[in-house]
Design a protein around this nucleic acid. Structure first.
Lengths: 248, 248
DNA sequence: GACTTTGCGTGGCGCCTCGTCAACTTCGCG
DNA sequence: CGCGAAGTTGACGAGGCGCCACGCAAAGTC
């Protein structure tokens, strides 16, 4: 994101309802309600706490608190309507503190997305390793992906709430690397003769496009059925690539 | 978008270079350079000018000027970094005037997107009508879509420029309707027995996902080859759907 | 344990953009 | 020509942004 000087602020008038907190000088810190999330206490599910200095610990907790708050607020107000202040308010921290952890709202969002990608990439790699051919890889990868979507569904339902008309997809380095990895798997299979010489970038794009778009729909359904979604995507791609035009 | 109260403003510090125009009271209107786009003159390619009052004409021109400026500025700064002021500045109009035409930056973007969808939907419908089976429809539709992408490539390269890490996809009513239409075509074909009873929503999602993702890649390539892209997507889907799991 | 150093949380501030609106200009029409 | 409607203008109040001087508490030193 290079240097950023401001954040997004698509605010929805819905929020104009309650008393505006204008004159209030930035979070008076009285009000017990606000302290819902105490400053320096371990957030639920904080990672790996043993043998850390107190400083390091708070840092971890604060970061996690901001991310969790962000997830909640994004879900509640939608990404666009959320301000950095909305996020930080829920944590009980001061506004300035936010900027010790993230440069902007976008960076928080990136972090959330990257988090997902970081969780799924090793699984894909494992799928790749234990698969002996393209077919198995695709099958495993889709199963992994749709399972992951369900397990992490809150992140992905996040953007759907309310008046958000955006679907934002962010090209973080982590995500790009993940995509590139898939392409490389394909190219490897082509080199090894497991796959005819098709356009690897397009095939990767198709695999990914099918995953994201079907995943999107799956998440919106009442009954989440990752197996069915995976089966659908897998059949389509595996049969489909038989007929793909070859690269000259 | 319902009620909107603000716009996005991810500003890049790059722009902090030149003299900041802080003290300058909103566009002093002197400076001949600014008048690059004269207020009330027909913009290139303005639609259907015959027999209109001057008022109606300016309205059309202003709207078009704003849209064109937006396209340029989005391309230059990226969507996120663009402010309403950036857009309006290029037109020579006053900031207030912007709001006579659009509620926010988002609405401009929607208008640009919808514009695209409005141009392509009739073509898809025509494809649909002149196709006698699913296979022909898919083939025609993909050809249409990728051709359209090339013809309107500037709109789609728009989001790629510079530091923009977002890919924004907007669910405007027009776009949703377009997707729904594709789904209905599929369902029609299922009813008519041209297609086995597959999950029409997922198939639509797959068709669309393949289109968008491959389209995205195509646009980024040196040599734009819509035929190849269409061929790739068509083969994949047409072969692929032969193996799709049937809906019970 | 006392004393220094370092890290970082805090919150007020100046900057900037937003969306509005009263005043003004232009157009259409009789 | 003159009047009302339509549209434009730009200054303004509101509020979010990101910064930074300040102070406190944890870590480091003897």
């Amino acid at each position: 994101m290079g240097d950023v000087k401001g954040g997004v602020s698509i605010r929805q008038s819905v929020r104009g309802d309650g008393p505006r907190m204008s004159d209030v000088k930035e979070m008076p810190s009285r009000s017990p309600l606000i302290k819902a999330m105490p400053k320096h206490e371990p957030a639920a599910g904080a990672p790996d706490t043993r043998a850390k200095g107190k400083r390091e610990l708070t840092k971890l907790n604060n970061r996690e608190a901001i991310l969790n708050s962000a997830r909640e607020v994004f879900a509640e107000l939608g990404y666009g309507a959320t301000t950095v202040r909305d996020v930080i308010r829920k944590t009980g921290l001061a506004s300035g503190t936010f900027y010790n952890y993230f440069k902007s709202k976008e960076e928080v969002f990136e972090a959330i997305m990257d988090d997902g990608m970081r969780r799924i990439r090793p699984r894909l790699k494992a799928d790749r390793i234990r698969s002996r051919n393209f077919e198995e890889f695709i099958r495993n990868a889709y199963a992994t992906y749709f399972d992951y979507l369900v397990s992490d569904r809150h992140t992905f339902q996040m953007m759907r709430g309310n008046q958000t008309w955006f679907r934002v997809r962010m090209d973080t380095p982590e995500i790009l690397a993940g995509l590139e990895e898939i392409k490389e798997y394909i190219e490897e299979d082509i080199r090894d003769g497991n796959l005819p010489p098709v356009d690897s970038e397009y095939l990767m794009a198709a695999v990914v496009g099918v995953a994201t778009e079907i995943g999107d729909r799956m998440i919106l359904r009442q009954k989440l059925d990752p197996k069915a979604a995976a089966e659908f995507a897998t059949s389509l791609i595996l049969k489909g690539f038989e007929a793909l035009p070859l690269k000259k």
